[in-house]
Amino acid sequence: MSFQAYLDNIQTRTGKSPADFRALASRKGYANAKGLLPGIEAGEIVAWLKQDFALGHGHAMAIVALLKGMKKEGDK
């Protein structure tokens, strides 16, 4: 499955776009426009996404990769 397919599936399941997740992470103090803030661990974000959006581990890690800037929309 491509990275974009993960993002599309997440949006279908949650109604939230990648931009929405960036904004939510920013409001929660996890990230800013440059990426994750210092001291923020992937596990903390994964736990949040599992709790609030019922995402599985793989889909939550896709959002982490997006927030870190490791991957971006349209990536395979």
Rank of each mutant, 00 (worst) to 15 (best):
M1S: 11
M1D: 11
S2I: 09
S2N: 09
F3S: 03
F3Y: 15
F3T: 04
Q4M: 07
A5S: 14
Y6K: 08
Y6V: 07
Y6L: 11
Y6S: 05
L7E: 03
L7T: 01
L7M: 12
D8P: 07
D8Y: 06
N9S: 12
I10S: 00
Q11W: 04
R13L: 15
G15D: 07
G15M: 10
K16A: 04
K16E: 06
S17E: 07
A19R: 13
A19W: 06
A19I: 15
D20K: 04
A23L: 07
A23E: 09
L24D: 03
S26L: 11
S26N: 13
S26K: 13
R27T: 13
R27F: 09
K28L: 14
Y30G: 01
N32L: 08
A33R: 11
K34V: 14
K34A: 15
K34L: 14
G35S: 04
G35L: 07
L36M: 11
L36D: 06
L37D: 05
P38I: 13
G39D: 05
G39F: 10
E41S: 14
E41F: 10
A42W: 03
A42N: 15
G43I: 09
G43D: 14
E44N: 05
E44S: 11
I45P: 02
I45N: 00
V46C: 07
A47V: 09
W48L: 12
W48G: 02
L49E: 03
L49K: 04
L49N: 07
K50C: 09
K50G: 12
K50R: 14
Q51Y: 05
Q51L: 10
Q51G: 03
Q51H: 09
F53P: 03
G56R: 02
G56T: 08
G56H: 02
G58E: 13
H59V: 12
A60H: 03
A60T: 07
M61C: 04
M61V: 08
M61Q: 09
A62E: 06
I63D: 00
V64T: 02
A65T: 15
A65Q: 15
A65W: 14
L66P: 01
L67K: 00
K71V: 13
K71S: 10
K72N: 13
G74V: 08
G74R: 04
K76Y: 09
K76S: 11
